[in-house]
Simulated scan of single mutants.
Amino acid sequence: MTDPALAPASFASNSTLALQGAVRLSDWGVIRARGADAASFLQGQLTNDVAGLAPGQATLAGYCSVKGRLLASFVIWSPAAEEFLLACSADLLAATLKRLSMFVLRAKCKLSDASAEVALWGLAGQAATDPWGDHHPAAPWAVHVASATEQLVRLPDAAGVPRWLLAQAADAAAPALPALADAHWRGLEAASGVVRIVAATADQFVPQMVNFEIVGGVNFKKGCYPGQEVVARSQYRGTLKRRAMLLALPAAEPAMAAGQEVFHDADPGQPGGMVALAGLGPDGAQLGLVEVKLALAQAPGAFHLGAADGPVLALQPLPYPLPVDQG
């Protein structure tokens, strides 16, 4: 995508100041893993080093099929000894919990759906730090454990906006912050470049296709897990031909949604990628984290949403560089 006419002004502008507040993440859910073997069990199932997770730290992790495709992605932290909370998309929680439970066997680890007990909130903007004073975690993936029923996880910034994930008791009062729209929170998720796998994209992407290893979701030294050989091969043989990029669409166009295909002028006869996550950017335009073929991203022309003649998608800068030795 080399045509400068396709690149609108950066999303990092004064409009980011409007993205202040809290939103109940009703499309997220929580799996609880509890027991003496919880860490070792998760270590053998997920893409990241759960056993080595330091106190006061959270991590990203993925759950892959044997073919190395992401079935789910998690934000994981430990609120208490021998206990982990795994925040993921609510629409794939039941299937993921069922699949993980099949492999517990004799391990001392109980898995359960904790969504009815733990409410998740997305907090955005500097005003979100006020209730926690000096206790709010400032570095990405740091965790403030206020109690067994309240934890605050620092997420990576998005479009210049600081973000946190608040876990609290389901019957606790809502954060004393302005309301933030669901679509704006999803837009911040996309702008952060950190994918969240949803039902529409489950079993579609090897982690590197959505930059999951770049943002810290994969540990290549931790040992085996389902799909590990495929993920490692993609990393070390330089065979990866797809990456996630940030693409924008005017607000007036049809809504961009996870699972939609995109097409490119250079090869209009077949899909050139898939929307992984989408929402509204700080200026009101649509913003999507989209997995695309690298060869097309480097070719003249533009990506289009839904069809070869669909709305034109404009390239936006990611908050991190992509490797240059692939494609």
Rank of each mutant, 00 (worst) to 15 (best):
V210G: 07
D265C: 12
A114H: 03
P55C: 04
L188H: 04
L240I: 13
L71Q: 15
K98T: 14
G281D: 01
Y236M: 07
V143C: 13
A114N: 06
Q126P: 07
M102L: 15
I214K: 05
A173K: 05
P8D: 00
L180H: 02
A58I: 01
Q298E: 15
A107F: 00
A124V: 11
K221Q: 13
R243Q: 15
L53K: 02
L152M: 02
A314V: 02
F303D: 10
S15P: 08
W141P: 07
L123W: 01
R242W: 08
V195F: 04
V231K: 04
K293G: 03
Q204R: 15
A285S: 10
L111F: 01
V292A: 01
R163S: 14
L100N: 01
L120P: 00
L247G: 01
A139G: 08
L246D: 02
P226Q: 11
L97M: 09
G62T: 11
G259T: 09
S15V: 09
S234Y: 08
L280A: 02
A199N: 03
L247A: 06
L246I: 02
A302E: 10
G62D: 04
G125K: 06
K222P: 06
V275W: 09
L17E: 14
D49S: 12
E229P: 10
A172F: 00
T96V: 12
A12N: 13
L277R: 07
A191P: 12
L60K: 05
A176L: 10
D182N: 15
I31A: 12
V66T: 15
L155H: 06
H136I: 05
Q204H: 13
W77E: 14
R242H: 15
V215S: 04
W28L: 14
D203Q: 03
A308R: 13
F41L: 11
L25G: 01
A38H: 10
M245S: 01
K98M: 12
P282R: 06
